[in-house]
Design a protein around this nucleic acid. Sequence first.
DNA 1: AAATTATTGCAACCGAGTCGCAATAAAGAT
DNA 2: ATCTTTATTGCGACTCGGTTGCAATAATTT
Lengths: 148, 148
Amino acid sequence: MQSEQEILRQYLKENGLRRTPEREHILQEIFATHEHFDVDELYLRLCQKGVKISKASIYRALRLFLDCGLIREVDFSDGHWHFEHIYGHNQHAHLRCLGCGEIVEFEDPNLTLLQGQLGRDYHYQIVSCHLEVKGYCATCGKTREKSL
Amino acid sequence: MQSEQEILRQYLKENGLRRTPEREHILQEIFATHEHFDVDELYLRLCQKGVKISKASIYRALRLFLDCGLIREVDFSDGHWHFEHIYGHNQHAHLRCLGCGEIVEFEDPNLTLLQGQLGRDYHYQIVSCHLEVKGYCATCGKTREKSL
DNA sequence: AAATTATTGCAACCGAGTCGCAATAAAGAT
DNA sequence: ATCTTTATTGCGACTCGGTTGCAATAATTT
């Protein structure tokens, strides 16, 4: 099992791209936690650690990481991009509270089954599978009931 | 079973909002097909039918239709919003080809089951459930194999 | 060490979506 | 029917996430 750094370096070499400290800093920061992140958060975290880097470079690096399959987009329908790193993560989906924004990650074995089934039924080679469920958590649900 | 027009009118009345020809034109155009759409497409279709309307009003109307549950967002991760009308549509998910852009809609009874289960497990009141699967269709998959 | 060229940071730019405002027009009251 | 109230419209200006052109920098190859 390769580390994410090794995967990146291999991808760079195979595509005639260059290994730079910026890219490695960004990658390291992404894999420092298992949280979802967006560009601003990532930028802030890097600044706080004293890493000087421009947002443009972060955007460019993220596109690169998407291409080599180290991260993936997560849709929170709030008008900007969110990401999560994939490597070492299991297939999982999100349950998000429309009230407080809490995010529950859950795994569903059926999802894996469904992927295989879809692939066969429609002769598709599946690349990604995103399940985003929205609703109200117990607390927010109760608050809502009162105000309706 | 009410028509979508009736649902809209009821919602407007209940919320002290007004019934306008613009809103009804937009709604009618949305339900004229069962296709997904984005703002530009919708705007174009309305223009072609001789309906004079501004994009700002379309954006505002769509937010309204989202609120009253007549349409929902679909995430194609291409940087802008897509929608589909819900009313009269069954719960369904999308399988999209990353090569040619073909979109297959499919229904999965397991999704409905999963919703109920999630609601119970996490004490969530589920509002929406989006499954977006991406991959390569048979044709594009073959083309890709050759070029790799 | 020199040559080549990918990458960076900056700032200008792009475009989807929003918003303030004056003009218009629904809906209810008289 | 007319008046009053106020939601809605269209316009254009604006916001802001994300992209891009370019000159300077720096990673790799020879």
